[in-house]
């Protein structure tokens, strides 16, 4: 028999809860110090999308994103968590405005970091213009917050991954943590296949999708700084690690990042598959990377990872 639920510590509960399977609210509850989360513009305020009604589609009281403040190991943080099961976690007008407002608040205060738990397919097509504008506003807000000294950390491990405008915003963050089921890209598998043909990208080839966009590849390429196992406690520890790790942001950091990306393109542009890239990066038996358990993969990534602490 397992121990009664009330005897389980929050850390044990977080360790045994899949980040991928959990709801946005459960992720926040278990990621932050127990009982510390305070929501802004909660569901009882009913700030729902003004557009979905026109399409005869159901609304959600929080418009698919939970924003607020809480504590992480005692220190204050701002948090936002997208609900990937509501319309694919997509950015609509209200959804986007809640995140923009949160990041702008962080910029004004200056000393409190922001954690964004991405879980999104990108812009919500039913409110495309408002959604695209929201993406632009959020990207600007992230860069302004970082310029003001605020750390903006992205955590990616949800069922909708981090696609479209979500991928662009993730690219603006100070640092990212990703798990194996988390995926980061701009165009999703089906978008690429629709536009460029099945020879270019077969969206039904799950192994191809995961080794091209999945967490392991993003970690090995240096797009994500930390690889987390798929449980909320691992993401909590990753967030704490990243908050320690993030250096100052300015023109020098941007130049270093540009150089890192240009160098990566030079070295790897001839590769046609992720396995070729891993081999080129000096990983023996690169074809076994997708099967590696999290602990072995983390050890491998720590040996070969090239993320420069000066970049981003």
């Amino acid at each position: 028999m397992s121990a009664p639920l009330k005897d389980i510590t929050p850390a044990e509960r977080a360790r045994s809860t899949s980040f991928y399977e959990a709801s946005a609210r459960t992720r926040l509850e278990l990621l932050l110090d127990a009982g510390s989360f305070v929501e802004f513009i909660g569901p009882e305020q009913r700030e729902v999308s003004p557009h979905l009604k026109i399409f005869d589609l159901p609304e959600q009281f929080d418009d698919g994103i939970v924003v607020g403040r809480g504590r992480l190991d005692g220190s204050p943080v701002f948090v936002a968590a997208q609900e990937g099961r509501f319309m694919g976690g997509a950015f609509g007008e209200v959804h986007g405005a809640k995140l923009t407002g949160l990041i702008r608040a962080a910029r004004q205060i200056g000393s409190i970091p922001v954690l964004i738990l991405f879980d999104t397919g990108g812009v919500r097509l039913q409110e495309a213009n408002a959604g695209e504008l929201a993406i632009a506003e959020i990207m600007r807000a992230v860069m302004e917050a970082r310029s003001a000294g605020v750390k903006v950390i992205g955590l990616i491990g949800g069922r909708s991954g981090c696609y479209g405008g979500g991928g662009l915003i993730a690219g603006c963050c100070s640092a990212l943590a990703v798990s194996e089921p988390g995926r980061i890209a701009v165009s999703g598998p089906e978008v690429i296949e629709t536009n460029r043909g099945v020879e270019e990208f077969d969206s039904r080839d799950r192994a191809l999708v995961w080794r091209t966009m999945g967490g392991k590849h993003r970690r090995l390429l240096g797009a994500a700084d930390v690889f987390a196992d798929d449980n909320v406690q691992d993401f909590r520890e990753a967030a704490l690690e990243l908050l320690e790790l993030v250096g100052p942001f300015g023109l020098d950091a941007l130049k270093a990042e540009q150089e890192r990306l240009a160098d990566r393109l030079r070295r790897l542009s001839a590769c046609s598959d992720a396995v070729d890239i891993w081999t080129a990066e000096g990983i023996a038996h690169a074809e076994t990377v997708p099967e590696l358990p999290a602990d072995q993969f983390i050890a491998l990534a720590d040996r070969t990872g090239r993320t420069s602490r000066d970049a981003r």
Binding site: S23, G42, P43, E44, E59, Q60, F61, D62, R85, F86
Partner: peptide, 18 residues
């Protein structure tokens, strides 16, 4: 004073209770 459960997705629902 209030609580919320569930998600608005196919075959699912959210319940806000106040």
């Amino acid at each position: 004073q209030s609580a919320i459960v569930g998600v608005v997705a196919s075959g699912n629902l959210e319940v806000l209770v106040e």
